[in-house]
Simulated assay, not measured.
Amino acid sequence: MNLEKTTEMPSKYRHLEKMSTVELLNNINTEDATVAESIKQHLPQIGNLVNIIKERLLSGGRLFYIGAGTSGRLGVLDASECPPTFGVSSHLVIGIIAGGDKALRFGIENAEDSEQLGWADLNNYEPTQKDVVVGIAASGTTPYVLGALKQAQKMGIVTGSIVCNPNSPISAFADFPIEVVVGPEFITGSTRMKSGTAQKLILNMISTAAMIGIGRVDDNKMVNMQITNQKLIDRGTKMLMDRTGIEDYEKAKAMLIRYGSVQEALKITKQL
């Protein structure tokens, strides 16, 4: 198949080194402004993926993100933010990156080039048909991701993908493909820019909507957030005061710390 890689097409901007700083920033901003509109065209596909993720999580399944390079880092980032934000187990949303944790900081040579390694890394978690595996790859061709999705689909595991090229090989092995084409990058081939921004925005949508869907948000509040620093203790205390009518700040704070989250504290106050 002759894949058109828009992510590798030449930038429409030339001689970047001759631009002033303000010109560079204006042009980058102009390109970034197109990303959200590109995503908007694919909200139904994103919604379909979110719905199956919610269904599987409520049935005891897990969500896996798998990718390499920038794509892998973004998946790990989104997964790592679910426990502190929504109070879920670190085993519920899992990010896997080619080359392992070291690849979060350093480029790991050839880590993304093996289809077998992608499935091997995923298989370490013993995925089942209750789970959902989402492959992330700007090019839509990364062998590491392709191998993982291919084998997961063969095993009857629900698969999704987030890519930035049309008709990509990875999409062919995704039950719920998302192909957001953002066009050539400001620096030719630098998919950490618009493609990475698109992936981050989509991941925000997926995890946030899924967590709301499984009951980890009340109204518009993070009532299950982990109370891990003074800022969050203060936020949670004020949230608890607002929701219960408790006027004594120190009393509300003590309850929050004792029960560990706004949600748990609210359950106790309802029982009193």
Score class of each variant (00 low, 15 high):
residue 195 S to G: 13
residue 213 G to L: 13
residue 237 T to G: 10
residue 233 I to C: 03
residue 168 S to I: 04
residue 222 M to D: 13
residue 218 D to I: 09
residue 255 M to W: 04
residue 170 I to M: 03
residue 186 F to M: 07
residue 182 V to Q: 06
residue 211 M to V: 13
residue 182 V to F: 11
residue 232 L to P: 04
residue 176 F to Q: 05
residue 160 G to K: 05
residue 257 I to C: 02
residue 247 E to W: 02
residue 168 S to D: 01
residue 247 E to N: 11
residue 205 M to F: 14
residue 234 D to L: 11
residue 237 T to H: 05
residue 257 I to D: 04
residue 208 T to C: 06
residue 168 S to N: 07
residue 232 L to C: 09
residue 243 R to I: 11
residue 171 S to W: 01
residue 217 V to F: 10
residue 245 G to M: 08
residue 215 G to Q: 05
residue 170 I to N: 00
residue 249 Y to Q: 06
residue 159 T to M: 09
residue 208 T to D: 11
residue 195 S to F: 02
residue 211 M to S: 05
residue 241 M to L: 10
residue 191 T to A: 00
residue 229 N to V: 09
residue 167 N to H: 09
residue 221 K to N: 13
residue 235 R to G: 08
residue 246 I to D: 13
residue 242 D to A: 15
residue 233 I to P: 03
residue 198 A to K: 11
residue 255 M to F: 09
residue 166 P to C: 08
residue 181 V to P: 01
residue 189 G to Q: 03
residue 181 V to C: 06
residue 212 I to Q: 15
residue 179 E to Q: 13
residue 216 R to D: 05
residue 225 M to I: 07
residue 215 G to F: 14
residue 212 I to V: 15
residue 222 M to C: 07
residue 247 E to P: 03
residue 232 L to W: 04
residue 252 A to H: 04
residue 233 I to F: 01
residue 187 I to G: 04
residue 174 A to C: 01
residue 221 K to S: 13
residue 229 N to R: 08
residue 257 I to K: 08
residue 186 F to H: 06
residue 160 G to L: 05
residue 244 T to A: 06
residue 191 T to D: 00
residue 180 V to H: 12
residue 253 K to I: 00
residue 246 I to R: 08
residue 219 D to E: 14
residue 197 T to C: 02
residue 167 N to C: 07
residue 171 S to V: 01
residue 223 V to H: 10
residue 166 P to D: 06
residue 203 L to N: 09
residue 185 E to I: 10
residue 168 S to M: 08
residue 257 I to A: 04
residue 163 V to Y: 00
residue 207 S to K: 00
residue 227 I to D: 02
residue 189 G to E: 06
residue 229 N to P: 10
residue 165 N to G: 04
residue 175 D to K: 13
residue 210 A to V: 15
residue 210 A to H: 06
residue 254 A to E: 11
residue 230 Q to V: 06
residue 228 T to R: 07
residue 246 I to V: 15
residue 174 A to E: 03
residue 220 N to W: 13
residue 194 K to G: 02
residue 188 T to K: 14
residue 235 R to I: 12
residue 217 V to D: 11
residue 177 P to Y: 03
residue 210 A to C: 15
residue 185 E to L: 09
residue 188 T to C: 10
residue 217 V to T: 09
residue 196 G to W: 01
residue 192 R to Q: 07
residue 217 V to W: 14
residue 207 S to V: 12
residue 200 K to C: 04
residue 191 T to L: 00
residue 220 N to M: 12
residue 216 R to Q: 15
residue 216 R to G: 03
residue 210 A to M: 03
residue 212 I to F: 07
residue 184 P to Y: 13
residue 174 A to N: 02
residue 160 G to C: 07
residue 206 I to C: 00
residue 250 E to R: 05
residue 165 N to H: 06
residue 208 T to S: 15
residue 225 M to N: 02
residue 197 T to K: 01
residue 181 V to L: 05
residue 198 A to V: 06
